[in-house]
Computed example of a mutant assay.
Amino acid sequence: MNLLDSQLKNNSLSNAYIIEGEDLAYNLEYAKEFAKKVFLSHGIRTNLETNPDIEIISKDIIDIGTIRSLIKDMVIRPINNEIKVYIISNAQNLRIEAANAMLKSLEELKAYSLIIFTVDNIGKLLPTIRSRCQIISLNTTNNKFDIDIDRLSQVFAKVFAGDLSAYYKEREFLLSFKEDKTSLMEGLIKILADLINNKYLGEMGKTSYDYNIETLTSINLTRLEKLLEKFELIYRSFRNNINFELSVENIFLNIYREGRQINGCSRDKI
């Protein structure tokens, strides 16, 4: 827990984390150990099983009722008067309406609330949830994507900078993922997630494509969230058999438009 230990030491914890790992049982144990350290940082030595200020949700189906109950509890101050921890284990089991309710609560977290999601693959969570959490990956194979991230990030950066021709030059490469849409979307989402980490959490130097990330630092958090929301909508359209080629083109036209607006060229039309 080097990164988390550092944040605990420097009193710089985020309010929300995603712990991603292939071993679901280990994810939960890792989250519990993290929770113990959080309580200890507040001078609270605790047995989690008897601690009234921690709630662990672990279900095969996490429905809206479960999340509404959690949200109601979140407005109640902790008994220890310092910190409350919520662990949502196997968050990939969140129903869509429950995930949307959880998203709203993430936007309005109390200072004393800490939420920890565990998930086997971050691609199974809403991009808008991911954008509001710090991601801790336990996957040993996490950086071995089935897509060339460096190449994808170059296209992303060039299109964002106003070079729409970069998309058409790499169109064949992008459309080659027609039968593996998940890899393409996970690659795009990883670029945005790494950008958030690099820009807002000071984690430069941890990717193999830092230069491409640096060229995107003019994107503020609001615009990042807009892109994530658009990617989410397009990703859903894949599942509904919407035309793949048009969907991919839509992704990069959105990237292009966001870049033009940031560069003061919003009057230009495509």
Rank of each mutant, 00 (worst) to 15 (best):
I262W: 05
S153V: 12
N142R: 15
F160L: 11
I116Y: 00
K84S: 01
I116F: 01
S176E: 06
K181M: 08
I62L: 07
S69E: 13
I135K: 01
S131Y: 13
I251S: 01
I79M: 11
N80Q: 07
I79Q: 12
N2Q: 10
S69K: 15
L164Y: 08
Q92C: 06
K269V: 15
L192E: 08
E172T: 09
I88Q: 00
L28W: 04
L8K: 03
D150W: 05
I122E: 05
D120R: 05
E229D: 15
N47R: 12
K110C: 08
Y235E: 12
V248Y: 00
A101P: 02
D53Y: 04
Y26L: 12
F39H: 02
E29T: 00
N100V: 08
I129L: 12
V248L: 03
D5C: 03
R223L: 13
Y211Q: 11
Y17G: 00
G205T: 02
D63H: 13
N11V: 02
Y26W: 08
I149C: 03
L28G: 02
N197D: 14
L224K: 07
V38K: 00
S69H: 14
V155N: 07
E97D: 15
L48W: 06
S237H: 10
K59T: 02
D60K: 15
K226W: 13
I149M: 04
F145A: 13
K84R: 03
G21Y: 06
I115E: 01
E22S: 12
